[in-house]
Simulated assay, not measured.
Amino acid sequence: MVIFCTNFGVVKIKLNTEKAPKTSINFLQYCQDGFYNGTIFHRVINGFMIQGGSLTYRMEEKEPRASIKNEANNGLSNKTGTLAMARTLDPHSASSQFFINVNDNTFLDFKSESMDGWGYCVFAEIAEGMDIVNNIKSVQTAKWGYVHQHVPVEKVLIDNVTIEE
């Protein structure tokens, strides 16, 4: 169990190491290294997802490790309360960023091993704290600079991350 202590409250995350072993290990390593401590949920779209995993409260990018292979063909679905890896258009570009689905986003699921069909790898689910996630999804957002949209006006900070056996 991974525990995110945020300025909105505590969220407990249960990894699915059976269906997404490499992705779970990758996420767990970032947690153990303290990488997520002091980062924010930098993209919040109510009705879709909340995303975090690499930006500090000053909107400075932390340097992630190498990308991992996409495990989205694991049978898990981007349903409400699941966590998936964020990535670029390259299906195998996920590193540290992740998102929490706040809606059933099955259109993000694996369809085929093609550029358009890979989808986004679900690797965990919210075990406790969905009420906290629902509070976060409702924050006011704005544009930040030229690149970032849907950035919470009030910072949503991941203060620290702990691991519970």
Rank of each mutant, 00 (worst) to 15 (best):
K22L: 15
K12S: 14
N37R: 04
N46L: 11
Q51N: 07
N105H: 04
R58N: 15
Q29D: 15
N7H: 10
E71N: 06
E128I: 03
S67H: 00
F41W: 09
E113H: 12
V139P: 01
V11G: 07
F48K: 05
F35R: 00
L89R: 10
V151H: 06
I163S: 06
I68F: 12
Q97I: 04
S112Q: 12
W144M: 11
K69D: 14
K22E: 15
N46E: 08
P152R: 05
R43C: 10
P91E: 13
L157H: 01
A142S: 11
D159R: 00
C121L: 06
L15T: 09
A94C: 09
H150I: 05
Q29R: 09
D109T: 10
E60H: 08
R65Y: 15
I3F: 01
W144G: 02
T80C: 12
Y120C: 09
V10Q: 13
Y146P: 04
V102W: 04
I68M: 13
F107M: 14
Q97C: 01
M115P: 07
N16K: 00
L89C: 08
N105V: 13
T82K: 07
F98T: 07
N134C: 05
I126H: 05
S77Y: 00
L157F: 04
I126G: 01
V151Q: 06
Q32C: 03
M115L: 13
N16D: 15
K14H: 09
I126Y: 06
N78E: 12
E63T: 15
V122Q: 11
E71Y: 08
F123Q: 03
G119A: 02
L89G: 12
S93Q: 06
L28A: 09
V151W: 02
T23H: 02
A72E: 10
E60L: 13
K137M: 12
I68K: 02
G52T: 08
R58D: 15
F110T: 13
T141A: 07
V139D: 01
M1N: 13
C121K: 02
Q51C: 06
W118D: 13
A66F: 00
Q140H: 03
Q149A: 10
I68Q: 10
L157A: 03
N105M: 13
E154Y: 04
S95Q: 08
F99K: 06
T162Q: 08
P64D: 10
L76Q: 12
T6V: 08
F48G: 08
S114I: 05
V156M: 10
S112Y: 02
E61C: 04
K12V: 14
L108D: 13
N101S: 13
T162K: 10
Q51R: 01
K22V: 14
Q32E: 13
A84G: 15
P21L: 10
I50L: 08
V122H: 05
I136H: 01
M1G: 14
W144E: 13
G53N: 04
H148M: 11
W144R: 11
G47L: 03
E61H: 12
N7C: 11
V151G: 02
D104T: 07
T141I: 07
Y146C: 11
E113A: 12
T80R: 14
V153Y: 06
S96H: 01
Q32I: 04
I100D: 04
S95K: 05
T88S: 15
N105T: 12
A66M: 06
V156S: 00
K62G: 03
Y30Q: 09
D90C: 05
